[in-house]
Every structure is written in structure tokens, then in C-alpha cells.
Design a binder for these strands. Structure first.
Lengths: 131, 131
DNA sequence: GGCTAAACGATAACCGATTATCAAGAGGCA
DNA sequence: TGCCTCTTGATAATCGGTTATCGTTTAGCC
């Protein structure tokens, strides 16, 4: 009957680094951002490992994907309260926006049922702002 | 010096059909929707022609692309007043939403400059609504 | 109608994003 | 430490969307 090796998840330094990256940054991160930040912790980190771990972290409900218009998915930690996103036209980074316009459901035309919504703000973040 | 053929745009039945499709539907249309609706008018219509004409109609400022989270671009006629979009979870169609939450700029955290915004509502359209 | 070049339609090629492959590396339990 | 298997990293393959190619069709001017 074998030795009963049923280890499902192995704790590697790469996986730890990727978790650490998401724990540090509260913003939604692209795969490239995760790769770049992860390499600060594990220089040999490869893009395939980033994708693999993002997928398994998403499967276990630790992160989830954030879809923004016209670009590949980003990922952020699960469990945040309802929020929206800001995209900086300067650096391309996404940031969280805690506020939410009230009564969004009322905006839909009669006959339409609204069950969720997404708001994306565009502009310049403090770092990219021309003073 | 030749015959002076400098005809830049030719009025074909395919192009007329595609314009007609956009003129009839006020919603943002995907390339597949344009193809399907266009074939009602010109059965032989091919996808390459749809892409070619969408690009030239966009270049001449008659339509423009609408990016929605996690899906390929759709296209709608230019010149509409400011509006947002509703995506039906049943049929996947996009619809216009005339209303707009006020004071969106105020939602951004301090230090962020907002110059535009996008709101997307999700739910069920009248046709897909379970009564 | 005849001519010429733009447009068409089928499909191959391309592109960026993501997944699969596989030899090498390394957790983790005896 | 030794072993076994999961994970990694490099990269090839894949995928959906879009663009390029090319022989055929056709709009538009004579």
C-alpha cells in the first residue's frame, strides 16, 4: 500500500516569496509585478513558477483575480472589504479605492437587475503627479 | 502621370452593412456580434472584413473601442454623451447606461488626481431575467 | 462594357498571455 | 543522511484574438 505520501502542498521558498509579495502590497499585482518583486526575495524565480503559484493560491482562496478593462488579470489578496480600483496613467499601477458610490443599482435602466458593479478611476497617483 | 486614381475609400456593400449594424444597435458590439448581424445583410461577410472595417471606421472617428474587464474590445458609435455600461450575465450582451454616479472624483484617496472613470454594472437584462 | 486598383474572403501567420513539458533541484519524512 | 516525489526554471506549445497574405471579386470612372 505504499508509504502514504499524500503531501499535497510543499512549502518552498518561491511560494513563500510570492505570498510575501502579496502580503506586503495591498494593490492588485500583475504577473510581471509579482515576478519582479518576487525576484527581490528569490533571484532565480521564473515566470512559470509565478503562474503556477498564483493559480494554486487562487484555488485555495488566498488571492483572487482582478479584471481591469483592456489588460491582463491582476491578483490581490482575498478578504478585503468591498472596494474599487484606481489605475495610474503614469506608471500603470493599480491601487485600491475604499470608497464606493451609493445607489449604484439605481443607475440601471428599468427592467435590468443589478447584482454587482465595478468602478475604475483613471488619473495620476501621488508619485506620478506633475506638481 | 497616370490617370489620377487616388480613391481612398470605396463604398462596398460589406462596409455599408457594417455601418448599418452599428447604426441600428446602440450597444457596444463585439466583432462576433458585428459579424453575425452583418451576415443578415451580406451572408458572405467574412471576419477579416469585419476587422478591416472596424479599424477603418475607428480611424475615421465613426466608432471607437469600448474596453470591458476581462474581455476583448467591443465597439460603439462615437458622439454619444457620457455614459456607462451594463453587462448581462445571461446573454453576455453589453448595454448602455445613461446615468452616472456624481462626484466620482471625490472617491479617490488624497493625493490622487482623477481625470476619467468607468463604471460597469453586472446583472440580468430584461430578456434574461428570471421572473 | 472595360479597365484598374481597392476590397473581399479564406486562411496562414502573428502576438501576448498562459499552460505544458521535462530534466534538475529540493522539501520533508524515515 | 537518503530517498521519493513535488516543485522549479527554461522553454516549447497552446490559445484566443487580431493582422497579413494572396488570389478573386467588384466599385467606380472611362
Amino acid at each position: 500500500m505504499g508509504k502514504g505520501f499524500v503531501l499535497v502542498e510543499r512549502d518552498t521558498k518561491q511560494r513563500r516569496a510570492i505570498r510575501e509579495v502579496f502580503a506586503r502590497e495591498r494593490r492588485p499585482l500583475s504577473t510581471d509585478e509579482v515576478l519582479a518583486a518576487g525576484r527581490m526575495l528569490v533571484p532565480s524565480l521564473g515566470i512559470a513558477t509565478v503562474y503556477r503559484n498564483i493559480n494554486s493560491l487562487a484555488d485555495e482562496g488566498w488571492i483572487h483575480s482582478v479584471e481591469l478593462p483592456g489588460e491582463p488579470a491582476r491578483y490581490e489578496r482575498c478578504g478585503k472589504p468591498h472596494h474599487h480600483h484606481f489605475i495610474c496613467r503614469g506608471c500603470g499601477s493599480a491601487f485600491d479605492v475604499a470608497a464606493c458610490p451609493e445607489d449604484v443599482e439605481r443607475l440601471a435602466p428599468p427592467g435590468f437587475t443589478v447584482d454587482s458593479h465595478d468602478l475604475v478611476l483613471y488619473g495620476h497617483c501621488p508619485g506620478c503627479r506633475r506638481t
